[in-house]
Each structure stands twice: as structure tokens, then as C-alpha cells.
Design a protein around this nucleic acid. Structure first.
Lengths: 208, 208
DNA sequence: ATCGAATGTAGGCGTTGCCAACAATGCTGT
DNA sequence: ACAGCATTGTTGGCAACGCCTACATTCGAT
């Protein structure tokens, strides 16, 4: 009986997987991308990775816990993407803002299901706190850009949080609408350009 | 046996329910609001309404079909809300826009789970088309306001769709962020005011 | 009044999430 | 080196779920 079992997977995989937790997250993201969050099943995940159906529970107490962790990964990747967007750009506010907008929307279009999961509302309470913190971590990047823009006199004065919220809203709103397919196709061409120009007007200093 | 069954629900409910479809949608919305979309179960819905577990299948071929229908209901209600918001308001663009923004955000805060469902991406393909159509139906209201604003010279010129997209984005983005709890608490007080002012600046005519 | 369509019921199938009991492995202190 | 313990994985079971098929009741058109 043990013989047939070991024969089943000729893989050089011992009793312990090595890094099942990471493997679960990776595979979960693939499934999420391909078949949506409803289709995501812990047991299927386990089958795909060649472990037993209860193995995932050693790393995520819950299905929701795995989704929460997945959302965290998403925010971390988003932050990296946004950070990278600022590296090869000029110093002008308009340039920095545009780079960040394009990066955010690019991320949304590349990972629509993940984005939906990140901003879903049914996370576990304690994971929710972590996710708000994750949001704060990436929005700091945007706030840094705004703050610098204010210092350069290219952005109207005002508390960082209050100036930032409308920008945040326009950015996230367009990304979400584009990613979920709620924009008519003819918009995709220049829609983002319009949003960027609109945003720049919205936060330009008074006398400009 | 039949005796105990009839005794179980003393309700004056004959073999046929009357309007099970509507009852399912109503109850589903309650459950959605209270326990989230994952917790929504066709069988539990049937139990709540005192019908057999397979009865819902006569009205919705699928669980997804019910969710799709629920999203449609949501869009219809949103449209009514927005339409009503324009009735007791002045003619100035700023006034009309503000009324619509407050109505949309109010709807989002009152029905966060429903809003999430409405803009979710895993709808059935043919329901998806219907939902895009539903989106178009309510966004026409916004476009009407914009068009009137343009005629009054209070909104910059430009194709309706292109001027509308950034406004749509800012509006939906703020509503979603507020509804999903992704805004720091101190923002809720005046955040929407800021977004409205920002939006008005963003679509003001050039020479203003 | 009859017959077909619409609506609801009863039961079964495979899958799922979760739990408890058990097994193999890795680690740590002596 | 190795005993003991925590970690990680396995097996089996349970209740609930979505969906399917077959059957029952009711409604409505003719």
C-alpha cells in the first residue's frame, strides 16, 4: 500500500513539500486569474501541488485566510510596481503623476481579479487592518509625489490627505472601471490621457 | 407524513409560491448585505422562503444567474436614486453634479456588498452585456448633466464620452474607496466635498 | 374539461470546507 | 548521538452545497 503510494508521484518530493505556503499562493493566483475567485478551491489547489487535501490548513487556517494573504501579496506587488514607475522619470509633477497613473492602471489591467480581491470587503477583521496598512504603504508613494509637487509649486496647497483623496479616487476609479470592462471600448485608447489631464487641472494651483 | 409537512408551515402558502423569483432576489439581497456574497447559498435561500431546495432552479438556472440578476436590480435602483437626485436641484452644473455625486456615494455606502457585486468581473458573458447596458443607462444621466453644463458654458468642451470618463472615474473611485473602508476615518467628513471641488476644477472651461 | 407548460418536490451525486486522529520529518538541547 | 517536541503532511469523516433527474401539483389556454 505504501508502495503504490510512493509510486504515484515519481517526483523527488519527500514527505515535506519544502515551501508549500508559497506554492499555494502562487498556484492560487494562477487559478484566480484563470477562473475567478469563486472557482478557487483549497482541495483542488492541494491536488495541483500533489499534497493531501488537508495540507493547506497547516498554512492557512481558512480559505478566507488564503484570500487575505493573496490580497496582501497583491498590495506588495502593486507597491513595487509603483515604486519602479518613479525611477526613470523626470522631476516635474506632471511627469511623476503620469508615470504613477500608467503603472497603477497597467497593474489593474494585468491583474483584474487580484485587484478585485485586494479591494473586496469581506476580509477577516484582523486581516482587514493589515490590508488598510498595505494600502497606506503604497499610497505613501503617491503622497510623496504630491508633497514634492506642492513644494515645487506645481500642486495647490492643502493638507496632504485632502489633496490626495481626489487623486486617489480618480486613479483607482479609472483603473477599476477599465479592469472590470465597464468602459466602452473606444475609451481605452485615450481614456487614461483624459483622466491624467483632468487630474492635473484638478490639483493645479489657483493662479495657474 | 404529508400531515407533518403541512403542519410545518401554517402559512397560507399553497403549492405555488406566487412570486418566488422576486422573493428570492429580495431575500438574497438581505443575505448579501448581512453576510457577504460567499455566504449566499441557494439552499439556504430556499429554506428561508419555505420552499424545497430545488425550487430556485426554476427561476435561475445557476447561482451565478441569480447574482447576475441581483446586479441588474442594483443598477436599476442606482439609476432611480440618481434620477431622483436631480429633481430638487437647481440648474447650475455645480449643483447638479454635487447632487449626483452625493446620491451615488450615498448608494455605495448604503449598499457596499451590492455595489461590489454590480462591478464584479465574473458575470456570465450574456449577463455581462446586459450589465454594461445597465451601466450605460445610468451613465446617461450623468452625461445629460454634463451636456447641459457644456451648453451653459460651465463645462469645458469636448466629446461627451471623453469629458465624462474622468468624472465617472473620480465619482466611482471615491464611492468604492469609501464603501470598502479604504479611506482613513478622518477623510469621511470632508472627503466628498474635496472630490466634488476637484472634479469641478477638472472640467471647468479653459478661461475660467 | 383537458392537456401542456410552469412551478415546486424528492432524492441522489460529486465536491467542498472544515475537523480530529494519526504519521513522518526537522530541530534543539543535552 | 539522540530523545523529545513542534512542524508539516495524511487519512477519513461530516455536513452543506450546487446541480441533475424524475416526479407531483397547479395554472392557463383551448
Amino acid at each position: 500500500m505504501t508502495g503504490t503510494l510512493t509510486a504515484m508521484h515519481t517526483r523527488t518530493r519527500s514527505y515535506h513539500h519544502g515551501d508549500l505556503r508559497a506554492a499555494l499562493l502562487t498556484r492560487a493566483e494562477e487559478t484566480l486569474r484563470e477562473k475567478g475567485p469563486t472557482a478557487l478551491s483549497l482541495r483542488e489547489l492541494a491536488r495541483d501541488l500533489g499534497v493531501s487535501h488537508a495540507a493547506p490548513s497547516r498554512h492557512f487556517k481558512d480559505k478566507q485566510a488564503l484570500l487575505d494573504a493573496l490580497a496582501r501579496v497583491g498590495f506588495e506587488r502593486l507597491r513595487e510596481t509603483l515604486e519602479a514607475s518613479q525611477e526613470d522619470t523626470g522631476e516635474a509633477f506632471a511627469e511623476r503623476l503620469e508615470a504613477m497613473f500608467r503603472a497603477y492602471v497597467g497593474f489593474a489591467l494585468d491583474n483584474p481579479a487580484l485587484l478585485e480581491l485586494m479591494y473586496a470587503l469581506k476580509h477577516a477583521p484582523e486581516a482587514s487592518a493589515e490590508l488598510v496598512e498595505a494600502t497606506r504603504r503604497w499610497s505613501e508613494l503617491l503622497e510623496r509625489v504630491i508633497d514634492e509637487g506642492q513644494r515645487r509649486g506645481e500642486v495647490r496647497k492643502g493638507e496632504l490627505e485632502r489633496v490626495g483623496v481626489p487623486i486617489f479616487a480618480a486613479l483607482h476609479g479609472y483603473a477599476e472601471l477599465a479592469a472590470t470592462g465597464h468602459l466602452p471600448p473606444e475609451v481605452h485608447e485615450h481614456g487614461l490621457d483624459e483622466v491624467i489631464a483632468f487630474t492635473l487641472r484638478g490639483c493645479a494651483p489657483d493662479g495657474a
